[in-house]
């Protein structure tokens, strides 16, 4: 029983800074500016359908790209010697020590028409590629910023897989490809699921990336919500309603995804 007491500070923290804000968002979402109950904030939601669609679409593309890039990397990483692992992990983490906005600004000067990449291509007489201010640049920004969140959980699961299981599979005559699909991948699924969650959730609510790399033309949910609180149209009630709908949709996505894993591989919420 005693050990439970140590959790109280955190319980208090959760109540104050997680539960209370959610309640405030719900209250705001269901009220008008004069404080009366209303559903108006939700009734106009279809106006923002394209923003919802784009945010979830781009986040999905970014998550799949992260998985395709991140899984092989995590796999390779887990099979290196301890020294190489240390160095490579450090290289993956290193960019995260720099401010997120700074990293995104750096991409701006890489992708611009007069940027480094196009100037380099220009040396070989290649016409400038149109990269900045496109949805492509936004996805690139997401992948760059969130890739470590995919690599690290997958890596930490793969590295703990019992080698004797792989040897047993080989002894029983499994081809290397079968060992991977029947043994390694199923065992690493919990890492994959938390990787997907850790990339998809922040990617859906991303803001600033579309402003810096997307030229403000591809508005995402994060930008739309920011606009209601800090930007042009001051309307925290609508902003809360959008945030609430987004939370519900993300929860549904996570719920569906977790059905893919078995009971002990479920992550985060359910």
């Amino acid at each position: 029983m005693k050990s439970r007491a140590f959790a109280y500070p955190y319980v208090l923290w959760m109540a104050l800074f997680v539960v209370a804000p959610i309640i405030i968002i719900v209250v705001y979402a269901f009220s008008a500016s004069d404080g009366s109950f209303t559903l108006d904030n939700f009734s106009n939601m279809e106006l923002y359908l394209s923003v919802f669609g784009r945010s979830f679409g781009l986040a999905l593309i970014a998550t799949i790209t992260c998985l395709l890039l991140g899984y092989p990397l995590a796999y390779a990483l887990a099979h290196e010697g301890p020294r190489a692992q240390g160095i490579m992990l450090m290289l993956i983490m290193l960019p995260m020590w720099m401010n997120f906005l700074l990293r995104t600004y750096a991409w701006m000067s890489l992708l611009e028409k007069t940027g480094l990449i196009n100037r380099f291509l220009g040396l070989f007489g290649i016409a400038p590629l149109n990269m900045i201010n496109t949805p492509f640049a936004v996805v690139l920004g997401m992948v760059y910023n969130y890739l470590p969140f995919m690599v690290l959980p997958i890596y930490s699961v793969i590295v703990k897989i019992d080698k004797s299981l792989l040897e047993a599979a080989q002894d029983l005559g499994a081809k290397p490809s079968t060992v991977f699909t029947r043994v390694i991948f199923p065992l690493s699924l919990s890492g994959v699921l938390s990787g997907i969650t850790m990339v998809f959730v922040p990617a859906v609510s991303t803001f600033a990336i579309s402003k810096l790399l997307g030229g403000n033309k591809t508005m995402l949910l994060g930008d739309l919500i920011e606009m209601q609180f800090l930007g042009g149209s001051y309307n925290p009630h609508l902003g809360s309603a959008i945030a609430l709908v987004m939370m519900v949709v993300v929860m549904v996505c996570m719920f569906v995804m977790n059905r893919f894993g078995s009971d002990d591989e479920q992550v985060v919420m359910f």
Binding site: L47, Y48, S50, V51, N216, K217, M219, D223, L224, M227, G232, S233, N235
Partner: peptide
Amino acid sequence: LDLYDSYMVKLKA
């Protein structure tokens, strides 16, 4: 002002 805002969101959305 509300009209401006809704047009601005529609323009960028």
